[in-house]
Amino acid sequence: MVHLVIDGKGFQAEEGQNVLEVALENGIEIPHLCYHEQLSPYGGCRLCLVEITRGARTFLSTSCTYPCLEGLVVRTDTPDVLRARRLVLELLMPLAPEAPRLQALARQMGVTETRFASDEEVDDCIRCGLCIRACAELVGAEAITFSGRGERRKVEPPFGEEALNCIGCGACVFLCPTGCLHMEDQDGVRTLDKWKRTLSLKACASCGRRYLPFAQIEFARQKGEDPPAEGWFEFCPDCR
């Protein structure tokens, strides 16, 4: 256990826990888009910047990637922090101008406009990598990845073609903070447009609704560590 101070209040934390986790657990709100408690922190969106004082040094750092250390003093609301966060948001907004969560954050933080222009083609992706980490760590499918570097960086399946490892679970769609990923079920086929993936769906034995990709069932069987009960996939969640 280590002791640290966040916004003037003392807290205890496990060593190795990150600052953002501890703050959120204790009801201290720090804006964040690319952090998820079940996934490894990445520090991609830069919104969770806080001011950290360690010994004689004070600096800004992303709280999701900063480990709790004995005697750490963290401030989440200094003018410096707020100004830095506003700039970060201004930089993110041109990437996803329509995203509701970004707009809500902008209202909250008093950002009315951005000084930065959008590219001609906007894909609404802020390159936070949440989908990639969910796919690799939570699902274990490893269907998508970052490619390129700098301004050419984007999220895509290998070679920019159909994501052959994608099982159509939709974890990436669910977690995407900007809603730039889409999943659609139509005529027994699930389509994830950005991963160029189409998957055939299995029908529920009771109501006949085609609800689950065969690939996902096969993946669950092969993974094996927590095998589903026999016949579990025969019925959709509504009929189980």
């Binding site: 490893e142 990845t145 970052f146 570097r149 070679f159």
Partner: peptide, 25 residues
């Protein structure tokens, strides 16, 4: 080549996504 990356991926049990990431980075 694509074949090289695919072969390496299978041979070393490294996901193809990770090799593609490196190759483009």
């Amino acid at each position: 080549s694509r074949e090289t990356l695919q072969y390496l991926s299978e041979r070393l049990a490294v996901p193809l996504t990770r090799l593609y990431h490196m190759a483009t980075f």
